[in-house]
Design a protein around this nucleic acid. Structure first.
Length: 147
DNA sequence: GCCAACGTTGGC
DNA sequence: GCCAACGTTGGC
């Protein structure tokens, strides 16, 4: 799950413990939140659009999907006039801090690993802020932390 | 800051 | 329903 550290980083989450992952305004990602996420699922916290893009920490999904109320707030950055309170377009989940990685797994590193080349996050033109991680890739990435 | 890639919008 | 124009993402 990507976020810009200038906006909200792994250190912010460490301090806050849990946080609503709001601001998703992409249908593919919305569907992933709606259909594919369960409480207790693990996720990587990825820093994007920064000096060193990559995986910085681990967190867990800590809620069921629920309406992203920031879409109803005219003053919010991600206000969406088309999302109706009675039938919300956008959803979010709460995430819970687990730990920071001992070593940042950089995007550069991910790209250099042939075995991970099928991961969406390393593919050209991928713009999804949340992408699925297969179990084998998850485990392989965690093994890189210890190298 | 540049720009490729992609999603969304809206005229037709 | 097509597609040009525009906006956004995010690596570099």
């Amino acid at each position: 799950m990507k976020n810009e550290p200038d906006d909200y980083s792994i250190d912010n989450l460490k301090k806050d413990k849990t946080e609503p992952w709001d601001g998703i305004r992409n249908y593919q990602v919305r569907n992933m939140i709606r259909d594919d996420m369960s409480i207790g699922d693990m996720a990587f916290f990825y820093h994007s659009n920064c000096d060193i893009p990559g995986i910085y920490g681990l967190m867990t999904i800590n809620s069921k999907p629920y309406p992203d109320h920031t879409a109803f707030n005219k003053k919010a950055k991600y206000y969406d006039v088309k999302s109706d309170v009675s039938k919300p377009t956008w959803l979010m989940v709460d995430v819970k801090y687990k730990r920071k990685l001992a070593k940042i797994i950089t995007l550069k590193k991910l790209k250099s690993e042939k075995i991970l080349s099928k991961m969406r996050v390393v593919q050209k033109g991928n713009r999804l802020s949340i992408t699925e991680v297969e179990k084998k890739d998850w485990e392989y990435i965690l093994s890189l932390e210890k190298k």
